[in-house]
Structures are given as structure tokens and as C-alpha cells.
């Protein structure tokens, strides 16, 4: 399916990049192999301006109101939210585990930081994911180059600032290569 290119409308404030929203959901009993992952992930729309973002976002369910095993992904247009994508294959992600009840607020803040280009790491950011699970929720931010420590440190420090994380929050960095090896996202 060919999609119409996304562009800002008259009078709108353009974003540095266009972003695409994806949604996925699976039953925990089903194995998370690559094929079922790709089949489960649904493209839900793209935005090119601040105004398009709000229009789109305000119609979405807040992640804290989702149930079961589901994920929202927002990635730069052209990057699939998969380890195998060219932009992700040498990359990794910061993982922040959140107790139940915090996901919606942290999700909105991490999106605003990404759309507003607050991370200052050039082209490195690929996208963000919120993962709703049974015991806890998980926020991740993916970048292109896992072994670039200047970049990953700057992303971590920016996250601490923009999310105003509680002092006891544990942040872990995981390369997608390691996720592939142990067949586990977190």
C-alpha cells in the first residue's frame, strides 16, 4: 500500500522529522518470533507538524488505559519499530521500568522531548515505545548506534531531565543485538 506523503498544513508548525505511530498487541502465550511480531504491528498514522501530532494523539487511548500486553511505538517516518530495520540493527535502547499508573504521563513527556528535538544527538534517535505489561509498564527510547557512549549518555541525561524521574528509577541500556540473542525485549 502506497501512502500519501505527510507534510505540514498551512499555518502549522513543522516538526524536524515526520513520525509514524504504530500499535501492537499480543497474547502472552504466543511466541514472539519475528514473523508474528511484524504481523502484529499495525501502522496507525503519520504526522508532520505539531498540530497534526495533537490532532492524532488526542484520539488515541492513553497507554495507562490499555489492558493486556500491548505497545505504542512512535518512530521517525521510514524506520520500522523492529530490531532488523537498517536504522536499528546497530542500535539499542534505554529501558525505564515504571510502576503502574505512571505510563500515560511519562509517555507524553518522552514524546514531546523527541518531537521537540530535546536530545541533541543529531540523527541518532529512532523512536520511542511504551509497553503495557501486567506487573509494570516500560518506556524505551531507541537510538541508532549502541556503541556510541557519548550519545547514549546524553540520551540518558536528557531522559532524567525531561521526565523528572524519581531518584530510585533504574535505567538499563540494552543493544538490539542482545535482544535478538536472548529473544527478549527487556
Amino acid at each position: 500500500i502506497r501512502r500519501k506523503p505527510t507534510s505540514p498544513g498551512a499555518g502549522e508548525h513543522p516538526l524536524q522529522y515526520n513520525y509514524t505511530f504504530w500499535y501492537s498487541r499480543r497474547t502472552p502465550s504466543r511466541p514472539a518470533n519475528t514473523q508474528s511480531y511484524e504481523q502484529n504491528i499495525k501502522h496507525i498514522g503519520s504526522v508532520a507538524s505539531v498540530e497534526q501530532f495533537w490532532k492524532f494523539y488526542s484520539h488515541l487511548v492513553r497507554p495507562g488505559d490499555l489492558t493486556g500486553h500491548s505497545d505504542f511505538h512512535i518512530f521517525k517516518e521510514g524506520i520500522k519499530p523492529m530490531w532488523e530495520d537498517e536504522a536499528n540493527k546497530n542500535g539499542g535502547k534505554w529501558i525505564i521500568r515504571l510502576r503502574k499508573g505512571l505510563a500515560s504521563r511519562f509517555w507524553e513527556n518522552i514524546i514531546l522531548a523527541m518531537l521537540g528535538e530535546q536530545f541533541m544527538v543529531g540523527e541518532e534517535i529512532c523512536g520511542v515505545v511504551v509497553s503495557i505489561r501486567f506487573q509494570e509498564d516500560i518506556l524505551s527510547i531507541w537510538n541508532k548506534t549502541a556503541n556510541d557512549q557519548v550519545t547514549t549518555s546524553r540520551i540518558r541525561d536528557t531522559l532524567r531531565r525531561v521526565l523528572n524521574l524519581p531518584p530510585n528509577t533504574i535505567m538499563e541500556y540494552k543493544t538490539h543485538n542482545d535482544s535478538l540473542k536472548d529473544n527478549s525485549s527487556f
Binding site: E12, Q16, V50, E51, Q52, K55, L115, Q118
Partner: peptide, 21 residues
Amino acid sequence: GTRIIYDRKFLLDRRNSPLAQ
């Protein structure tokens, strides 16, 4: 090139713009 940077307040202020409805 120039980067388009928006702070959180700027983005939140656009939320209720007629263009965002």
C-alpha cells in the same frame, strides 16, 4: 542545517489550537 527545536511548553500551548482539533 537548522534544527527545529520546541520546548515542552511551546508544544503544550499548541494543543488547543484550532488547527489541532
